[in-house]
């Protein structure tokens, strides 16, 4: 039960920190992340949401609504264009749920899921923004200079943070039983 577990505090706090760390990392390391021609986008918040799905066990966090709210705030605060991430973040959760039915989640399959999630997120972001006329870079450049570096950065996040976040969740889930 989400309401009775310690995750009730741990999960929103983590979401909060991940949300603002994305912006802070982009600011502090902007010289490295956005050095021409490559641009890497930090998606710690997606990492937190996706890993929460795999580590929640039987706690059942209301992930989709959390994702929608986080997406709305992301739109308001970071981009100023409302309506994209408030749908994309829940979509990523639903996609992960759909994929996870077919595989047992292990470290390697979670890497694969996360790879697909980030790819979908960036692709849909690209298509939506080019539809409303915000960007005018061609698709090939996007694949090579944006998608590939972004995937690399976020997979590094995943590999580094998988076990720490796993133990954090395991501990918060356990405490409620004892």
């Amino acid at each position: 039960m989400y309401r009775l577990s310690r995750l009730r505090y741990v999960f929103p706090i983590g979401l909060f920190i991940a949300f603002f760390l994305d912006g802070s990392i982009s600011k502090v390391f902007s010289g490295w992340l956005f050095s021409y021609p490559y641009s890497m986008v930090s998606h710690l918040i997606v990492l937190w949401l996706v890993l929460a799905y795999f580590f929640e066990e039987d706690t059942k966090i209301p992930l989709v609504s959390f994702a929608a709210v986080a997406g709305l705030i992301f739109d308001l605060y970071y981009s100023g264009i409302i309506g994209l991430f408030m749908f994309l973040f829940p979509l990523i959760i639903l996609l992960t749920q759909a994929l996870a039915k077919y595989f047992t989640p292990t470290f390697l399959t979670v890497i694969m899921f996360f790879f697909i999630d980030i790819t979908c997120l960036e692709l849909l972001n690209y298509f939506a923004y080019s539809l409303i006329g915000l960007i005018n870079s061609n698709f090939g450049d996007f694949l090579v200079y944006v998608l590939a570096p972004t995937l690399a950065l976020n997979l590094i996040y995943l590999v580094v943070l998988y076990f720490p976040i796993h133990s954090l969740f395991a501990r918060s889930v356990q405490r409620k039983n004892s």
Binding site: G23, S79, N125
Partner: peptide
């Protein structure tokens, strides 16, 4: 002072 930067490859925005 600058609070954050938009984590996006399309929008170079500072808050």
């Amino acid at each position: 002072s600058v609070l954050t930067r938009t984590p996006s490859s399309w929008q170079n925005q500072l808050v």
